[in-house]
Amino acid sequence: MNRTALDLWVGFFVAIGLAAVLFLALKVGNLSASSSGETYALQAKFDNIGGLKVRSAVKSSGVVVGRVAHIDYDSANYVAVVSMQMDARYKFPRDTFATINTSGLLGDQFIGFEVGGESEMLKAGESIKKTQSAVVLEKLISQFMFNQASDSKDKK
């Protein structure tokens, strides 16, 4: 079997095709960021998760430290149970405070960790005790408007 110019062209074609896939994976997609290393599971219960989705980020001080793995509904206590896959490099104190935040005014929702002061760390599979639900923008606005209305009534 001889090497021909045709082989060279096919080789070139396959090489740039694979380079394109690599470009999509590393530069366009999040394959480089997800680092898919060791993880451990944490849980948190929220009264209202708002628009939180599976694969939403878990952030502490703005750094992504984990992802939401799945979201279930606890029908006994009527709360949402969010399971998170945390990066094994990061440990958090047991009194860490989990809140649901929104990036920007209309951006994606994510779970934010406000780190507590306890020396004992959360172990895999444990549940976060202190949580704060998502802020529902409509409720805030309606509260604000009702306050305004009652204020102006008082002035009269």
Binding site: V21, L24, A25, K27, V28, G29, N30, A33, R55
Partner: peptide, 11 residues
């Protein structure tokens, strides 16, 4: 782009 495009889901 990197934050939104998911390797498994999209690519």
């Amino acid at each position: 782009m990197q934050a939104t495009v998911d390797f498994r889901e999209d690519i």
